[in-house]
């Protein structure tokens, strides 16, 4: 039995298209607010006196800080694709660090969809969208690479 693919032409044509960059100034206050939100008291994220004495030479951002350095283009695309699969979930994240992100950096963020797959699982029919995000600093160096899996899934009607 051949089943019709849930992956549409609209989705396929979005693969490989780099979104325009979104640029962020890495501010001390935003890093502190982020550390307070995750309730991680590590002085490297808040205490200039401690951070200065480490090899970083100053305050750095927590590992998952790139979550707020969002380039919304890809998630918006995945959210807005026309499909009967109404739900949207984050399936997984990976971050690879080439250099620390430091207070004072200017980070430019580009994102793209790299692959799409469909599966049937506990939530019924699902489409997996694999996205890659590149974070570059003011010197043009890639400081971090992000990989994310977004899932559109069936939402069953309530009885």
């Amino acid at each position: 039995m051949v089943q019709e693919s849930a992956i549409t032409e609209e989705m396929r044509s979005a693969v490989g298209v780099d979104s325009p960059p979104v640029v962020y100034d890495i501010e001390k206050g935003a890093v502190k607010k982020f550390a307070l939100a995750i309730e991680d008291p590590n002085p490297l994220y808040q205490d200039e006196n401690v951070a200065r004495k480490t090899e970083y030479g100053g305050i750095i951002a927590p590992p998952t800080f790139p979550s707020m350095l969002r380039n919304p283009a890809v998630v918006d695309k995945v959210f807005n694709f026309k499909t009967p699969l109404k739900g949207l979930l984050n399936g997984g994240n990976e971050l690879e660090y080439l250099k620390p992100i430091k207070v004072g950096d200017v980070i430019s963020v580009t994102a793209k969809l790299v692959d799409i797959k469909e599966r049937t699982g506990a939530m019924g029919k699902m489409i997996f969208f694999f996205a890659e995000t590149a974070y570059k600093n003011q010197k043009g160096e890639v400081v971090c690479l992000g990989r994310q899996t977004l899932i559109r899934h069936e939402v069953k009607e309530k009885k």
């Binding site: 590590n42 927590p62 590992p63 399936g91 997984g92 990976e94 971050l95 690879e96 990989r147």
Partner: peptide, 21 residues
Amino acid sequence: GQLVTDWMGYEGTLRKIGCNY
């Protein structure tokens, strides 16, 4: 992330971290 950075200390370097929800 905090689990790993607490463990590795100031002189450790995190190269990669990933997870599935």
